[in-house]
Design a binder for these strands. Structure first.
Lengths: 215, 215, 215, 215
DNA sequence: GATGAATGAGCTTTCATTCAT
DNA sequence: TATGAATGAAAGCTCATTCAT
């Protein structure tokens, strides 16, 4: 599968020519790489222009501001991830199967779009106001999606994805496991993300199921 | 218990007067608060000086540079945490008990020194060179300590803290759960950290023990 | 003759528009004036910006740093001087005539580019590393050029510009006379530089020629 | 002869204890060393304090300001030089002999107090106002002393040190030769200062004497 | 579209100096 | 005498952004 930037147009954006869209994709990918490496604050528009081999002023044809750049990056990436995971969760199967597919899907997305996802995961608070809320809304929908499946694992399919204190907290813990991977994962040392996903599930599945009886 | 900055002098520091030491503690606490809220890069020395109600130049009596400030903050905090957890792990008990105490200890430290710990957990890469390595070494010792206890939970006391792939990965997952708490925890919504700690253990304990049989 | 900055582009500089080149010339001239008056260290970039009626940040379009500014100033000026004097020395004539032309040429250059030359003569050590060496190399070539002509005056044309201890030392003494002029020369009090040049030659010519016989 | 700082108390200074005087001497010597190496502007009071192994605030017991430090340095050094050269010029002898003694005396002073003299020679304009004028007055007296002897060489003892255009200019040239030595002299490469002095005289003596006849 | 030039605001850091102790 | 602590001012430089071309 070709390694492309996660695509999903930002709101209120008219797509110009196809070539422009392509360039924008490239810009965002390079931007993600820089932001992932140095952090958003520490990445200057000059850095970006240099990395992209464009002029500083040229960047402002694609992004109205530095913040807008981050917003587009987060919006597209998070939107893409959510879309993918919604499709994954919609496929039929037992709660355990759907849970497994979500974990794997998340980690595969991580593997394919590491830089972009890192900028989403760790730079959320670099946005403020409306852009922040827009992205935060996506993030919350994703959290809800995961919670509903976790709830099914805990309570069985009959629970119908109904959130409980336990399912909510467990989801937060699981996202912690998933997102912390940025801090340590190296394919050559730790194996494939699919293996990691399985290990994560093995760590928590019994604990989740125990809830069926006790809570 | 009084809320003080985690105390542990940085290396190579001679303290002049006692009042200076006190002030330094206060500086670091305020600094941690700002850094936790806005991030290290986005926190300017001016911000700090203002928050502390001191002059900008005055800061440089206590820290040779902005980076030195972060280093001292991380060194003291991480050092304190490690010291505490070493003591906790050294107390006798079954592996499960020791594991429980470590989780609780970590979360209690979080509750008491949230800002300082956040600056340690999320700004590690804002240091470079020797300071980075010095702090990284502490972090690694803490990781090892946790891994050895996790290994005992997995393999029983007879395993003697010997690391395995499973114990190492499980520890990374658990640290993910623990550290992600910065992203969501609110005492009024989620209960005490002690409760959170118990929930975490319930989520993973079965999964850890399963290892005793299966691998 | 119009009073312009000594022109010679610095190495590795591509000039954008013609107007930019013009502005750069103006900047260097004003900079030379300030540096000559107050010294390089004591001249701040803010001073320069003010004198030029530009913004502080704008300066950094032309010079990558304060040191780069000094380097460009020295490189252009010294390069221009060397070029001129090489042409002067290349013209045919007796050793005495060529010596006379070099002295006059140097003093005329001084008269036309006093400020720029002063920054070259007295701020050489404000540069370090590669820029220093680049300028120092020009200076040395100039010194060699002068020494070879002085040697011819001492030993006659047959000596072919071969350096001797005497010619080297005499050249150093003569450069002292020439460069010290910055400390005292005022046209209205001391006459033209051409007159000054003649007086210098009268002071040393006999002494140089004496060498023909005795050493 | 012991290498000490050139001693001559600054005006309006009460000498405290002998130990204080000694320390002051040491301070000035170290200061001269730094100023000679880096220039006055580029030398900070912190640099000085560190070099002297004293506290920053401590410096202000000896010097009321940074400028005062430079003033005392220049006043003492130039005063000492003038005193020495006045004694030298007062000794009987032919004009040529007295001229020779002055040149040698100057260069020997240079050799013994290189750093101090450099700060006098090249940092004169770092002073302003009254301090500048005070030092400038000494410098002028020294210039007059030299001019009178040069005039005697030119015009014979009967000229009685009467200044002429020629003697004034020749003195300026000669001071150029003498002072430029800071830029190039290395004992191991160029021989003793006494040798250098003789070479200087050989370079200019004929030219000076020629004046006896022609103007 | 694209870019060189420009800028006000802000950055970290250092300066000479003062003062309580 | 001596010094740690403190500070207003200023240093060199970079920032995100704008605009004429």
């Amino acid at each position: 599968m070709p390694k492309t930037s996660a695509v999903m147009p930002a709101p209120g954006r008219r797509l110009a020519r196809a070539s422009t869209q392509k360039k924008l994709d490239e810009l965002l990918m390079k931007a993600a790489s820089l932001v992932a490496r140095k952090g958003f604050e520490a990445t200057s528009m000059r850095d970006l222009a240099k990395a992209i081999d464009a002029s500083l002023a040229g960047l402002y044809h694609y992004f109205s501001s530095k913040e807008d750049l981050l917003f587009q990056l987060q919006y597209r990436t998070f939107g893409s991830l959510l879309e993918q995971q919604q499709a994954v969760a919609a496929e039929p199967g037992t709660p355990e199967e759907r849970f497994a597919r979500l974990i794997t899907g998340h980690l595969q997305f991580y593997a394919r779009h590491r830089n972009e996802l890192k900028a989403c995961t760790f730079e959320l608070e670099s946005l403020t106001g409306k852009p922040y809320e827009t992205v935060e809304a996506i993030r919350r929908r994703y959290y809800r999606l995961m919670t509903s499946v976790v709830a099914d694992v805990i309570g069985g399919p009959s629970s119908n994805g109904k959130e409980t204190r336990k399912s909510r907290h467990a989801t937060l813990f699981i996202f912690g496991m998933l997102n912390w991977i940025f801090m340590w994962y190296e394919p050559s040392r730790h194996g494939t993300v699919e293996q990691i996903g399985q290990e994560m599930r093995e760590l928590v599945l019994d604990g989740l199921r125990r809830g069926k009886r006790s809570g």
